[in-house]
């Protein structure tokens, strides 16, 4: 994976987060809210650098610290964005946050999508549900550097129209001629005039050519499973397919021991892996 400078982490005390403030809260779906955070230290904020695919750990003191994909692009210097689905103790505490509330953040951690090696290539992005979060960062980064890549096709699937995040972004992507963006929902719905169908099927119908292309998929396990099958039928090889893994994490720096899949740590070797890399790992997902 590409080596990304690990700026933003205090090198002398890597387990100590930096105070940050919530500058915006966006209700995306009934269960997902997006939070825009700014480090309280202006120098730290100004120096903050990351690449799409990298992660951050948000602390809600008393509840704990959890890992989330950064969903804003590197060009967004005003804030660092995370989309959080309410699931457990920490995410529930995060969902209590309002604009102006104080949190703490350790970011960026992990390895990014190796976009530098994708120059001139077609890029196919397929995101399901909350899995669209790191792919939003990626897609916006690709569009910021549009000339570097071939055709860009982006697919975003959710169960119902109300489960789709990023309404403004979707409208912007749909309006652009230099990206083929398709949002799809699983079954016909009175509020939906767009594409209907499970994402793997929609992707397969569009028949993106595998030659000179990479595919990036992120979403729930069942979506990943069937999208991989679709990509295989379209002729994508294991080294052309990228995904991100999630594991319970604590330290985020490869020391505490829990997020390993065989010899690889999701926090430091990932979260981005090629399918080829995953196939070489013990089957323990």
């Amino acid at each position: 994976m590409s080596t990304i400078p690990k700026k933003g982490i205090n090198a002398t005390t890597p387990l100590v987060p930096e105070p940050a403030t919530v500058v915006a809260v966006i209700q995306e779906t009934p269960a997902i809210r997006t939070y825009r955070l700014v480090f309280d230290d202006p120098a730290l904020m100004a120096a903050f650098m990351f690449a799409p695919g990298q992660i951050g750990l948000i602390s809600i003191f008393g509840a704990g610290e959890s890992t989330f994909a950064i969903s804003s692009p590197p060009s967004q210097k005003d804030y660092i964005q995370f989309s959080v689905m309410r699931t457990g103790a920490v995410t529930s505490a995060i969902h209590e946050l309002a604009e102006g509330d104080r949190v703490a953040l350790r970011a960026p951690l992990g390895c990014a999508f190796p976009v530098d090696s994708w120059k001139e290539k077609d890029v196919i992005i397929a995101g399901g549900g909350i899995g669209m979060a790191p792919l939003r960062s990626l897609l916006m980064h690709l569009l910021d550097n549009r000339g570097d890549f071939g055709r860009i096709q982006a697919f975003y699937g959710a169960r119902t129209p109300a489960d789709l995040c990023y309404a403004e972004d979707r409208a912007a992507w749909e309006a652009r001629a230099d990206v083929d963006f398709i949002a799809a929902i699983d079954a016909a719905h009175p509020d939906w005039s767009g594409r209907v169908g499970l994402l793997p099927g929609v992707l397969e119908e569009e028949q993106p050519p595998a030659a000179g292309a990479v595919a990036v998929i992120c979403g729930p396990p069942v979506m990943i499973k069937f999208t991989l099958q679709s990509l295989e039928r379209l002729g994508f090889g294991d080294q052309q397919i990228f995904t991100t893994l999630e594991r319970r994490m604590k330290c985020g720096i490869g020391l505490c021991g829990r997020c390993n899949v065989g010899p690889k740590y999701v926090c430091t070797d990932g979260p981005v892996f090629t399918l080829d890399e995953l196939r070489r790992l013990p089957a323990e997902l």
Binding site: S59, F61, G62, E65, C256, G257
Partner: peptide, 25 residues
Amino acid sequence: CHCFNIFDEMQGDRDGERCRSWDAC
């Protein structure tokens, strides 16, 4: 064996300490 857990120990209503302790795989 060196795996560790990270957790918060509250001191009062909101302040506290973040600690780490031995964990077990």
